[in-house]
């Protein structure tokens, strides 16, 4: 008798548990991600930029015959957009990186573009991977997603074919992690959150790779789940294994963690006032919204204070005040 009650109960409990894991958590995480990120960006936006403080990394626009650096020191909005594009798409500033080294008792500066390369490789391959995942969320699969997948798996290695972006992302993440562990200086500045973010990303990538090339997963089931999530008609399909579950939970953790960690640099990079402003402070008036009057030492006060000395030195006094 008890068994008759217990079995369906347990089954439904298991079903509910699975529902929470496969549906509840992703929804919550994504909501936190979107809400949190918006909250962060709005928070930044609410603080004004009182002064125009671009870091100028090249010649200013001044006399017409002097060649200016329109992208490293833009004087127009368009130039600033260009500068931001270089920054966001190609990591311009990191590209400048060099290493100070002592030789013959003097500093010499050598190239150091590994970080730039690693960061570029990581971010771009991550973007490619994210876009490729659209094949699971959209039905029918957009042509550009299919095309990306095709190019990404151009080299026929294994079945399914190896995605180059997967290799790149793993190598780049490994590099980013190892440099933190290897380099004493970076180990010194690294905090828990630095490792946490890297490990989450690495874990997510590894489980993803494992599903594709190792343990396998029923892609159709995964896609049904994904479409269900995307269209608010969640289904809990059978056949998604434990690896997928870990993958999903890690992604959820990453999404939920995102707004509250350094990962918000994704949004922040666009708002950096040392980069996204045109260096036109002397060309155009810029208003500080909270500019308030301050106590100054006015000319009248000053003249009053130094009247004798001004007279003695025959420096002309202000006629308006001079009686």
């Amino acid at each position: 008798m008890a068994a008759l009650v217990a079995v369906p109960l347990l089954a439904s409990a298991a079903g509910v548990g699975k529902g929470i894991l496969l549906v509840g958590i992703p929804y919550a995480a994504f909501a936190i991600f979107l809400g949190g990120l918006c909250w962060r960006v709005v928070g930044w936006a609410r603080s004004p930029v009182p002064f125009r403080i671009p870091t100028t990394c090249g010649q200013q626009t001044s006399l017409p015959w002097i060649k200016s650096a329109p992208l490293d020191n833009p004087s127009t909005g368009l130039g600033a957009v260009g500068r931001m594009a270089l920054e966001v798409l190609l990591f311009r500033s990191l590209f400048r990186n060099n290493r100070a080294e002592i030789y013959d008792q003097r500093y010499v500066f050598g190239d150091s573009k590994w970080l730039w390369l690693g960061a570029l490789a990581f971010h771009w391959s991550l973007l490619v991977i994210l876009l490729r995942h659209l094949r699971l969320f959209v039905q029918p699969v957009p042509a550009f997603v299919l095309f990306m997948g095709k190019v990404d798996s151009f080299f026929q290695i294994g079945a399914p074919a190896l995605y180059l972006s997967n290799v790149v992302v793993l190598c780049a993440l490994a590099y980013l992690l190892l440099r933190r562990l290897w380099d004493l200086r970076l180990r010194y500045i690294s905090q828990f959150s630095d490792y946490f973010a890297l490990l989450l990303l690495l874990g997510t990538a590894l489980t993803g790779v494992l599903m594709r090339y190792g343990t396998r997963v029923d892609v159709v089931a995964v896609k049904r789940l994904a479409i269900g999530l995307a269209t608010f008609q969640p289904v809990v399909p059978d056949g998604v294994g434990i690896v997928f579950l870990i993958h999903l939970l890690m992604v959820s953790a990453l999404a939920a963690y995102f707004p509250f960690s350094k990962l918000v640099h994704m949004g922040g990079v666009f708002l950096s006032p040392t980069r996204n402003l045109a260096n036109n402070s002397r060309m155009k008036r810029h208003v500080n919204p909270w500019n308030y009057p301050v106590k100054t030492h006015t000319y009248a006060e000053w003249e009053e204070e130094f009247r004798d000395k001004l007279l003695m030195a025959e420096i002309p006094l202000d006629e308006a005040k001079h009686d």
């Binding site: 990191l94 970080l115 500045i189 640099h265």
Partner: peptide
């Protein structure tokens, strides 16, 4: 100051401790 300076607020949030600035 967090309310007045976006620079301050933003710079508090976005550093990823990549280390590029260290020997600069």
């Amino acid at each position: 100051r967090l309310e007045r300076f976006r620079s301050f607020k933003l710079f508090m949030d976005v550093c990823v401790r990549c280390g590029a600035c260290a020997d600069k």
